[in-house]
């Protein structure tokens, strides 16, 4: 069973995963029994009652009410068990414990922002304490996304006009992958994030130092880190490849033609505007799809990114 389970399902890392998995296996096993039984019956009948001559006479068996009732009621009982089980599991999934640690999630095409109580914002990296319920309050800036962590067996759509929430309690420290499960456009399949579950102490330490570690870093190095951390590289390559946005290579100081025909030199002001108001001026040939980083990146960080861009010639 364990081997089968490992093959079919990702490791179970949350407190609620167990119920889901148990039900998953129950349905699999029951279905398999029925499937094998009926398939054997079909094959056996096909062989046993194969046509021997064109004059074969078959018996007149038009119906049998007892049989009809049997094969209606037994499946009915089974599916009612499945329904009850599934519903109980679901109620646990949506009943959020009061003492849950809250993180605010904002989805944008195509990145995840995580806002913590300290005001710190991480992109595509969610840090949570293990062995403690965590509640995510989520909303989207543009289209519908869906927050999905297979290891925790949780998923919830993230909508543009309202808040949705989900919770989980991670059983031990470790990393898990986050997918966007609702199709959201070009880079839908790149909209991944990672959950880092820490022990409570580690988490507290991380939260205290998060963001402040940047202070004494070299601007170019910091800029490089920020580009990765904020998922800029999902759409902007650094090696000249064309993705959803223009590549960063050779960008600095070059002249660009905009959608309206205006020629712009890529300087500090243009980069700054592009980060804070990305859709104000769009390079010709690209779609206005970049989300704004206003409120996510501060001035020092924008400066660092500019310094980094200067090095990519």
């Amino acid at each position: 069973m364990n081997r089968f389970s490992d093959f079919m399902l990702p490791p179970a890392k949350s407190t609620t995963a167990e119920t889901t998995d148990a039900l998953f296996h129950f349905i699999n096993v029951t279905s398999l029994i029925f499937l094998v039984g009926i398939t054997i019956a079909i094959i056996f009948f096909s062989w046993k009652y194969r046509r021997r001559s064109d004059e074969d006479v078959t018996p007149v068996i038009s119906h049998n009410n007892k049989l009809e009732i049997t094969w209606s009621v037994i499946p009915l009982i089974l599916v009612m068990i499945v329904f009850g089980w599934g519903f109980t599991g679901y109620m646990n999934l949506i009943t959020i414990p009061d003492d849950a640690y809250e993180v605010r999630v904002v989805a944008k095409s195509w990145l995840w922002e995580f806002h913590y109580e300290t005001g710190f914002v991480s992109v595509n990296e969610l840090h949570v304490p293990a062995n403690r319920p965590v509640k995510l309050v989520m909303s989207s800036d543009d289209v519908i996304h869906s927050f999905f962590v297979p290891d925790y067996r949780v998923k919830m759509d993230v909508l543009p006009n309202r808040y949705t929430s989900l919770w989980f309690e991670v059983t031990e420290p470790g990393e898990s992958i986050v997918y966007c499960a609702e199709y959201c456009g070009t880079a839908h399949s790149n909209m991944l994030a990672t959950v880092f579950a820490h022990t409570q102490e580690d988490f507290d330490t991380w939260l205290e130092t998060a963001g402040s570690a940047d202070d004494d870093m070299d601007p170019v190095e910091l800029g490089e880190q920020l580009v990765t951390r904020n998922a800029c590289d999902t759409c902007h390559s650094t090696d000249g490849t064309r993705l959803q946005g223009p590549t960063f290579q050779g960008l600095w100081g070059s002249e660009r033609e905009m959608e309206d025909g205006e020629i712009v030199v890529v300087d500090e002001n243009y980069v700054r505007e592009s980060i804070l108001e990305p859709n104000a001026r769009i390079t010709k040939g690209y779609q206005p799809v970049m989300p704004s980083y206003a409120g996510t990146l501060n001035d020092r960080q924008i400066d660092a990114i500019i310094e980094y861009l200067k090095t990519l010639q």
Binding site: T20, L23, F24, L35, V82, G89, K155
Partner: peptide
């Protein structure tokens, strides 16, 4: 007969997706 076999698999996995807790994991 191929229909019967494959449709049964389709049906049983439909039961799986109808179960709320499991569907949360398997949806999309």
């Amino acid at each position: 007969q191929i229909f019967l076999f494959q449709f049964m698999i389709g049906g049983f996995t439909g039961i799986m997706l109808g179960a709320l807790a499991v569907d949360i994991h398997l949806h999309d």
